[in-house]
Design a protein around this nucleic acid. Structure first.
Lengths: 244, 244
DNA sequence: TTTACTTATTCGCGATTTGAATATAAGTCA
DNA sequence: TGACTTATATTCAAATCGCGAATAAGTAAA
């Protein structure tokens, strides 16, 4: 049997075949007001004019994929420090009506304040609330703004849904949750983030115990200010657990 | 600030930019003799002549990514029923010395007997044992054949390592393990697969309990044959747990 | 200054899960 | 028939988890 593998590995001519365009799309997420939110841009031209889309850009020949994602991220203000992770690659033949575009989706996590600052700095961006079903099943990936459903361009609803799913799956065993908080935060704020992502209320003492036992948190002797009642202690994310 | 998003979404000309080639590479895994194994092909031409590589192929303009992965899989015999899942997309600028190639990696899981049959049917394929460190840390992604290290082409060692990592992360909460076994199997065989992937011995009664409680297993009244001692019951993977 | 109020933080318990050793069952083979 | 080996079931202690309640620490009003 002839192997397609052998076909191209032995004598490959770069100019012989048509090549698809490759883009990166970013799901820029945060937790705003107790609900997960994503950053969208409004499309002014066809296709999908008037709809909302994930920010993205084509991958240049002289940059890697992560580099391209960082570049797209850097185009917006206040987003340099975001946590970025590759999500999935979407390559259905007809996902873009103009031409074949393969999109490598990334998701990025930002603290609420950076997110809000970026939103204010650029008028064409929009925050969208993500519908989080209470059931533990799959995530619809629908976006909402002020209680009205937001129609998304391309297959971006699917991308959004997968981003929420991925975040949900990772948040209780990986330290990604800290990327959604400022450098110093209270345990209550951390729990709020977890509850917003998972869509369920969590038990306070148990959550506290788990987090503290993991060794990811470093107490700064400081306390929260401005609270009307007993101020909570501020913690910091300790990237390297001190071994030994 | 000018958005790169707006730049290309508003007036995109498909012919205006150079485009990278897009390929799919497959990490075809199984568990052979109590150790994880992957299928590799020997490269006869430069670059990386003499080294081993993952089977792969370029994505055609008229097929989706999953479709391309299935096609590359179908080129080999005995592999139609494999479990296939997208793994990660590798896009470093210089990962292929000939030209820019972005590779969407997939991993596929096969029962040991199908794997062996495919190996016998094609002489250019080779089975490689994957080095699984006993520590719970990261996976090196080194391939071994008969106790000698196998130098891999391109960034395929990295791809291999990520595949093992992904499989390890999924095996105890997702039913992927069943894809590595024939249709009917004993609990001991299932445990052997889990131990091979994780690289640690597991507690037998606890493993049995967990698996049975999950509701994924359906007992076929039959028993294993050919064993010299008490034959174990054969189970079948029940895809849909009967709800209600 | 004192007291009410609200939230942070800790404590303590029962229920559930987990790890591991042991007992029993069921086949083959000498 | 009995020794042998593995499957399967039982049992028990340890660790974990959910959850309610007690205690602590601030602010704001009396």
């Amino acid at each position: 049997m002839a192997l397609s593998e052998a076909e191209f590995l032995t004598g490959y001519d770069p100019g012989a075949y048509d090549r698809p365009s490759v883009a990166v799309d970013l799901v820029l997420m945060s937790v705003i007001g107790g609900a997960p939110a994503a950053l969208l841009v409004r499309r002014e031209e066809p296709p999908f004019a008037g709809r909302w889309a994930l920010p993205g850009g084509f991958v240049r020949m002289d940059e890697g994929l992560d580099e391209a994602a960082r570049r797209v991220l850097g185009d917006k203000a206040h987003m340099a420090g975001a946590y970025v992770e590759q999500l999935y690659t979407f390559g259905a033949v007809d996902r873009d009506p103009r031409t074949r575009v393969i999109s490598v989706a990334y998701f990025a996590l930002l603290p609420a304040d950076c997110f809000a600052a970026a939103l204010k700095a650029d008028g064409s961006l929009s925050l969208a609330r993500i519908a989080v079903p209470r059931t533990t099943g799959d995530v619809a990936g629908e976006a909402w703004s002020e209680d009205s459903a937001l129609p998304l361009a391309f297959d971006h609803a699917q991308v959004l849904g997968l981003a929420v799913q991925r975040l949900r799956g990772k948040i209780d065993w990986s330290p990604v949750g800290f990327a959604l908080l400022p450098e110093r935060f209270t345990l209550r704020a951390l729990q709020d983030v977890h509850e917003a992502i998972l869509g369920v209320p969590l038990n306070k003492p148990a959550f506290r115990r788990r987090m503290l036992d993991r060794g990811w948190l470093e107490p700064t002797g400081e306390r929260e200010t401005g609270s009307s009642f007993r101020p909570a202690e501020l913690f910091r994310f300790r990237s390297l657990p001190i071994s030994g």
